[in-house]
Design a protein around this nucleic acid. Structure first.
Length: 394
RNA sequence: GCGUGGAUGGCAGAGUGGUCAAAUGCAUGUGGCUGUAAACCACACGCCUUCGGGCUACGGGGGUUCGAAUCCCUCUCCACGCA
């Protein structure tokens, strides 16, 4: 069997589990972090370098390669691996997130984790969502484009990643319960249509659980997706924070959903996250994470450290002769003082972004390795507690 | 020496009688970023404030005017041109 998932160890005190995903291109030790290479590149570094840091799978985005029609060229290379000249396992996101990020996310300036409250009236925006699919304008050239479950699967088959995702609707945390209910119906329907359209034998598909911040919807979603023959599960936004702490809301969603899911299948938490979020999610039985935080923050001058995120541009770091994180064993921290990185980032030197990107990716991948080790040694809960006691979130 | 054009906030550079504490860009500072329209975005950026406002500012000095960064005189400095 080309694809499989096996649980190697479970911690008693939590739902944390260490596992192994096998694909035709290689194995992935979980819990793992999946670096995001949206358009086929890890912004600011290379696949090989990041693989050496411990990344065993990468994520590419269907949406972007669909909008610019580049998937057709990639198909001529028989898929992404040949095009990118890499042998590592890959996953492609379906484009569902962009329905949100270019739609209501863009128009109302909200992330999928709501931080603001207020009146919200869904208006007919640039992205038109119907039961059939989504019609939108290409952010590349303004062309009118349509994405449906069938098109997403077709494109993902051409891209040829090992793991693909069902096409879902990622709602906004500001959407109403009624809208979430209607949207979930659609996402569930689309999940079935994705499976119906899926013909490739050398790929596997993850089904996506939605339902916003609503317990009944989340559970309904989990039950439905669980009943379908997906390789694994992906839990998507939106993690609404309309009544306070959005973080605990995310954790609540995981508490509702994970007990319903077949535990022999891998669980991917889409788009999360920051180190403390990852710990909480691992404790609730999540196996895979993808997130743009390490790479985007690096380009924006934020470094991941054991003490929390840090603005490397501030004077404090410009004057520091110590490494960014003195416990980090990445080549950047081994070789350069924070002052140099700070200087490069402040001067907008590409090399500074590259170095910080490598540091941040190394940091998060090392963090995942520590998590795996702690589960293996049956001390994940202690590890989590210790880590959170010194990791300060802004 | 003569002529001409200039001198504006950390820098560049608008403004050429009131709506100017002074556009815009850069720099600076702070905050944000969680399936990447993101090497991006937002806010702040003379001093003081009981947040009503007050004070000092557009090279120096003097003047005209109810009122000047803006007009006039003069000094200093800079650029270009001519000797």
């Amino acid at each position: 069997m080309k694809f499989s998932f096996r649980i190697l160890k479970k911690e008693r005190k939590s739902q944390a589990r260490r596992g192994l995903v096998k694909t035709r291109r290689g194995e992935i030790r979980t819990p793992c972090f999946v670096p995001v290479a949206t358009k086929g590149a890890l912004k600011g570094t290379s696949f090989d370098a990041v693989n050496k840091m411990g990344a065993e799978i990468f994520m590419v985005n269907t949406f972007h390669l669909f909008c610019n029609q580049r998937y057709k060229e990639i198909a001529k290379f028989k898929g992404l691996n040949n095009f990118l000249k890499i042998k590592y396992p890959l996953m492609t996101d379906s484009g569902g997130f962009q329905v949100f990020s270019l739609g209501s996310g863009w128009e109302y300036g909200v992330g999928k984790i709501a931080k603001k409250e207020g009146l919200y009236e869904k208006k007919e925006g640039k992205v038109k969502i119907s039961d059939d699919g989504v019609i939108f304008r290409s952010p590349y050239n303004g062309d009118k484009l349509e994405m449906t479950p069938e098109i997403s699967i077709k494109v993902q088959e051409k891209l040829g990643a090992d793991i693909i995702f069902a096409f879902d609707e990622c709602t906004s945390p500001l959407d109403s319960y009624e809208y979430h209910k209607e949207s979930l119906q659609r996402t569930n329907d689309w999940a079935q249509r994705c499976l119906n359209a899926f013909k490739a034998k050398n790929q596997v598909m993850m089904g996506i659980i939605q339902g916003g911040e609503y317990q009944d919807l989340r559970k309904e979603s989990a039950s439905f997706i669980n009943s379908l023959p997906f390789f694994g599960f992906a839990i998507g936004g939106s993690f609404g924070g309309s009544f306070g702490d959005s973080k605990s809301q995310l954790n609540k969603v995981l508490d509702w959903v994970n007990p319903i899911l077949d535990e022999s299948k891998p669980r991917h938490l889409l788009g999360i996250g920051e180190p403390d979020d990852i710990l909480e999610a691992v404790a609730r039985g999540i196996d895979l994470f993808d997130c743009v935080v390490p790479t985007r923050w690096a380009r924006h001058g934020t470094a991941l450290t054991r003490k929390g995120r840090v603005n490397i541009k501030s004077l404090k770091y410009l004057k520091s002769k110590k490494p960014i994180d003195d416990k980090c064993n990445c080549y950047v921290c081994q070789r350069y003082p924070a002052a140099y990185i700070s200087h490069l980032i402040k001067e907008k030197e590409i090399y500074g972004m590259m170095l910080l990107t490598d540091h941040n990716l190394h940091w998060i991948l090392n963090f995942m390795a520590e998590i795996r080790k702690s589960i293996k040694d049956s001390r994940f809960t202690e590890f989590k507690k210790k880590f959170l006691s010194c990791y300060k979130r802004n």
